[in-house]
């Protein structure tokens, strides 16, 4: 899913259907053009317990306008962007979408899936189903994850490993978590998958410093907030992050 390790990846999250469907479509295309290597497309959920206020509000807004799982797929296939799209979801909307949900996602051109509330070992049957689907299965590692479990998580994932940079929910932070470099090293010692870091990255400067340590940088809330102003604002932010990462 990602290129060579020396070209640091920029992974951008947006909530499908936020601020509305039209602008969501413009965002998908604009962000790909602005230099996003992967787009994480958020499937809105009524009770996003791992998300901070910005993404919570964006989910609610998308739901209020009728966004659904299949609506997300339609949006992705209509956007027809050249970069991979990973669905970022809570479990319940995926399960509710029925037994063919993963096949429909693959048919719509979705490349991967990340499920916030399905940790490794949480539901072996569902995990096997996702693992055997055509989608890459992106798994998360947290700052609290012990070394042994890191290896187990990496073994059960594909695409890249999503390293949560700090304790807490999604949202911008003024500082990068201390000890991040050590966590990345520990994770690298147990996996050959690219290690991408997300949660709390607020702008180009932080993106560049994370890119010095990790294989990729994931940015969400900052872009979602910018999108509330305008599509251009979000695109501009991503372009600035791309530049900062490349010139780090």
């Amino acid at each position: 899913m990602l290129k060579q390790r020396d070209a640091k990846a920029l992974i951008v999250y947006i909530t499908a259907g936020h601020p509305d469907r039209t602008r969501s479509l413009e965002l998908l295309r604009g962000l790909a053009d602005a230099g996003a290597d992967v787009i994480e497309l958020g499937v809105p959920f009524s009770d996003p317990l791992a998300d901070g206020p910005v993404i919570q509000a964006s989910s609610q807004r998308a739901l209020d306008q009728g966004m659904t799982f299949d609506g997300v797929l339609k949006l992705a296939s209509e956007a027809a962007v050249s970069v991979p799209i990973v669905l970022f979801s809570y479990l319940n909307p995926i399960v509710a979408a029925g037994p063919t949900a993963l096949a429909r996602a693959a048919a719509a051109g979705i490349d991967g899936l990340l499920v916030t509330d399905l940790p490794v070992g949480g539901d072996s049957e569902l995990e096997r189903e996702i693992g055997e689907s055509p989608l890459a299965f992106i798994r998360l590692v947290a700052p609290t994850t012990p070394a042994l479990r890191m290896a187990e998580i990496a073994k059960h994932g594909s695409g890249f490993v999503y390293l949560i940079s700090r304790l807490g929910v999604t949202g911008m932070q003024s500082k990068i978590a201390s000890g991040l470099a050590e966590t990345i090293d520990r994770l690298r010692s147990v996996t050959s998958l690219p290690v991408c870091v997300g949660f709390g990255i607020n702008g180009p400067e932080q993106a560049a410093s994370v890119a010095r340590m990790a294989d990729g940088v994931i940015v969400g809330s900052a872009v979602v907030r910018a999108a509330e102003t305008s599509v251009d604002e979000a695109v501009k932010l991503v372009r600035a992050m791309r530049k900062a990462i490349d010139e780090r």
Binding site: A50, L91, P119, G122, D123, T145, I153, I164
Partner: peptide, 12 residues
């Protein structure tokens, strides 16, 4: 039942 939670909480 089960444990459908973010990874951060698993060790706790």
């Amino acid at each position: 039942g089960g444990r459908y939670v973010p990874e951060t909480l698993i060790p706790a």
